[in-house]
């Protein structure tokens, strides 16, 4: 059968890490992080919407947001944003044919910096408050 545009049964090929190489992992992570960030954006707007329901409702929410589960969720957002942004710089550079032969090293660097950055945030968020 002719391959079809946006065939839903091929969508999994965007995310399936089996048989993929370093550049493929970078792409998969970038896309997952991007989708996560978009999801978070809506969540964020929904939470800000609580402001319109008055200070009491909002303060109540802020109190629950200090629980470890929320902090873990926020750390996921931070990790996604760091990786997506840093890998975005990698994608931008390579798009001008800068550093394409080093794209793997650039991916590892972006990943390492994201992990380190997330750890810094984690330490601060779990100790300061």
């Amino acid at each position: 059968m002719e391959p079809q545009k946006n065939d839903p049964k091929n969508l999994w090929d965007w995310f399936n890490p089996k048989g993929r190489n370093v550049g493929g992992w970078a792409f998969i992570l970038n896309r997952i992080a991007a989708l996560g960030l978009v999801f978070y954006l809506y969540l964020h707007l929904f939470v800000l919407g609580k402001l319109a329901q008055g200070p009491q409702v909002f303060d109540q929410f802020i109190a629950t947001a200090k629980s470890p589960l929320y902090i873990l969720g926020e750390l996921l957002v931070i990790a996604a944003a760091l990786y997506h942004g840093l890998n975005g710089v990698r994608v931008l550079l390579t798009s001008f044919n800068i550093g394409v032969p080093q794209q793997k090293q650039m991916f590892y660097t972006a990943l390492l910096l994201s992990v380190l950055g997330t750890l810094v945030f984690a330490v601060r968020m779990f100790t300061v408050h």
Partner: peptide
């Protein structure tokens, strides 16, 4: 920019680059 093409190309074309 997944560069999978360059990873599998058997003929050194490096199409991704």
């Amino acid at each position: 920019s997944a560069f999978e093409c360059s990873a599998v190309c058997p003929s050194n074309v490096d199409p991704g680059r």
